[in-house]
């Protein structure tokens, strides 16, 4: 027996199998993102005073990305309508546009992520609990990186030489020890890594480009006006997009001993960035998988269009439903993470 209702709807329920399937799946997705949103709310309302970041994300980028996703949502439903109108060419055009939108979204998102990885917040002990954001001086950082690499290479070479000498000897002495150096990737630097690096390379202060713009704010904290003659404490809104090294900077030399904590804007920085990366990362994963499926429909299902056009239309409808859902999630994510 064949499985019934794969293409034609079942009379009493009025839907075909895959449609019930995708709606069931979306129901579970509602619970998935719903649980994450709930977690976001709980984390935010239970955050100890002064630990929840606000207004650190790049609003224009988020805004642009929202428009991109909305546009793709329109085109994906147009692609389906074109199939229904027997217009395969239009279907292709719309679908390819949709997939391109998805790729644009992901590309922009990856730049946005990258920016966060290079943006640091430093807590110092010198004055009263001083915190500021910015990034390490680029030249200084690449110098340290080069120095580190050279030093590690040197130690490795020494070890190799000692090892080959030892293995050709009578092995009466102990084998040479593996070189002991801190493992540092330079992807981002943590406080511990900075300390390790400073003792390893022998520098005792870091060079930091401090942002002057008031670029971040902790919920429930008095506003940090670290530049008295810079009268912008009032409007954190429109001035808050100063990430990535634009705007004024002040070069600081911070003794390593004074750094209480330094962290890039990565998940371990704060629960805000943790939930930000989780929510947007999971969403981006959905965008990626959705784009793959839609691309498959437009590039690999041409034969199905000739043999069983209804089936292809159903597929596109189901894929489209998923895509709209992904868009729908972003419609909430954007204001919640970027604006509120």
């Amino acid at each position: 027996m064949e499985i019934p209702y794969t293409v034609k709807p079942r009379p009493d329920t009025g839907v075909y199998n895959a449609k019930i399937g995708i709606w069931l799946f979306l129901a579970s997705e509602i619970m998935l993102f719903g649980a994450l949103f709930s977690s976001y709310i709980i984390l935010r309302i239970t955050a100890p005073e002064g630990t929840w970041l606000e207004g650190v994300l790049n609003v224009p980028i988020g805004f642009g990305n929202t428009l991109v996703l909305i546009a793709s949502s329109v085109t994906v439903v147009m692609a389906w309508a074109s199939l229904k109108l027997n217009n395969y060419k239009a279907f292709q055009r719309y679908m390819i546009f949709t997939v391109l939108c998805a790729l644009t979204f992901l590309l922009v998102k990856s730049f946005e992520y990258n920016e966060k990885f290079h943006h640091y917040e430093v807590w110092t002990t010198d004055e009263t609990d001083n915190r500021f954001t910015g990034h390490f001086d680029k030249e200084w950082l690449s110098e340290q990186k080069a120095a580190y690499k050279a030093r590690v290479a040197e130690m490795d070479a020494q070890y190799q030489a000692a090892l080959s000498e030892w293995s050709s000897s009578d092995k009466s002495t102990d084998a040479p020890r593996e070189p002991d150096y801190p493992k540092i990737t330079f992807f981002t630097l943590t406080t511990a890594e900075i300390r390790d690096l400073s003792s390893f390379l022998g520098f005792d202060s870091v060079i930091f480009e401090k942002e002057h713009k008031h670029a971040y704010k902790y919920a429930g904290m008095p506003e940090v006006d670290d530049h008295a003659h810079h009268d912008e404490a009032g409007h954190e809104g429109d001035e808050s997009h100063a990430e990535g090294g634009h705007g004024h900077h002040e070069t600081l030399t911070i003794p390593v001993g004074n750094i209480k904590r330094a962290s890039a804007f990565i998940p371990s920085h704060s629960t805000f960035f943790a939930i930000y990366f989780t929510l947007t990362g999971l969403h981006a994963l959905h965008v990626f998988l959705g784009a793959c499926v839609l691309a498959y429909f437009v590039f690999c299902n041409r034969r199905m269009w000739k043999e069983d056009p209804d089936r292809l239309a159903n597929r596109v409808e189901v894929g489209g439903l998923f895509w709209h859902f992904v868009d729908l999630v972003w419609i909430f994510l954007f204001p919640v993470l970027y604006l509120l």
């Binding site: 009025g14 839907v15 019930i20 709606w23 979306l26 129901a27 509602i30």
Partner: peptide, 9 residues
């Protein structure tokens, strides 16, 4: 059927 589903979720 679909209303029920989404409603319950």
């Amino acid at each position: 059927a679909i209303y029920l589903l989404i409603g319950s979720a």
